[in-house]
Design a protein around this nucleic acid. Structure first.
Lengths: 112, 112
DNA sequence: TAAAACAATAGACCGTGGTCCACGGTTTTG
DNA sequence: CAAAACCGTGGACCACGGTCTATTGTTTTA
């Protein structure tokens, strides 16, 4: 899949896709048909991009995403990978708590 | 209360407090004892700062906080104020959903 | 009363997360 | 085959949320 199609399907702009790639969130094999150097993306890149968009809205940084990708896809050390992912999960849950507290504060403000 | 004490008690740096004030999140009456122009904060500023810290971690922008403060403290129009606050609450809940989804994605990644 | 601690302002600076050119090459399409 | 549509790179630019510095003025405190 080329960048335009990926952008279209994922709802992530070409520029942002290139930005993510520069930052190691995704990879592309430069098509083997050597006449051009267009990026070629695997189908599952779409899945990842979907996750990234949601995760960004959930408050994760690009660096966070990077470390997840490195852990999961990099497959350096399975145990370490799991540890990284679990860590990110608990960070997310902590953030969810902060949200509850903020909601609570605001609801109290409404009551008054 | 002067800025140093407020910073100490709230855990928010002096610079950030002044930044928040510049951005309309808090106000101070310049002490009436006119020899200096030191900021003087009401006690409840501490409460607000606590909320702000949590809300920032929850992913709210300074502009979001500004509109809440304007609505609640500005007391322009009570109904409108409630509307603004409810809106922010639902934004927060949406974000919480994004978090659940991200957690779900990551937990699935762990299973594999 | 002198030094240390605190405060004010203005403005420079920083990382993050993109977004937007400009320019040149490649592919598609009518 | 020419024009339109697409892609690549590099670098400028942007908003956001602070943070830091310099300079000057005010309190505290020993």
């Amino acid at each position: 899949m080329r960048i335009g199609e990926l952008a279209e399907k994922s709802g992530v702009s070409r520029d942002t896709i290139r930005f993510y790639e520069r930052n190691g969130l995704i990879t592309s094999c430069t098509g083997s048909s050597a006449t051009n150097n267009y990026r070629d993306y695997a189908d599952d890149t779409l899945i990842w991009l979907g996750f990234f968009s949601g995760a960004r809205e959930a408050g994760m940084s690009v660096a966070d995403l990077r470390s997840i990708v490195d852990a999961v896809a990099g497959s350096c050390d399975a145990d370490l990978a799991r540890k990284v992912v679990r860590e990110k999960i608990s960070e997310l849950k902590l953030r969810a708590q902060k949200i509850s507290q903020a909601v609570e504060f605001l609801e109290k403000a409404l009551e008054k």
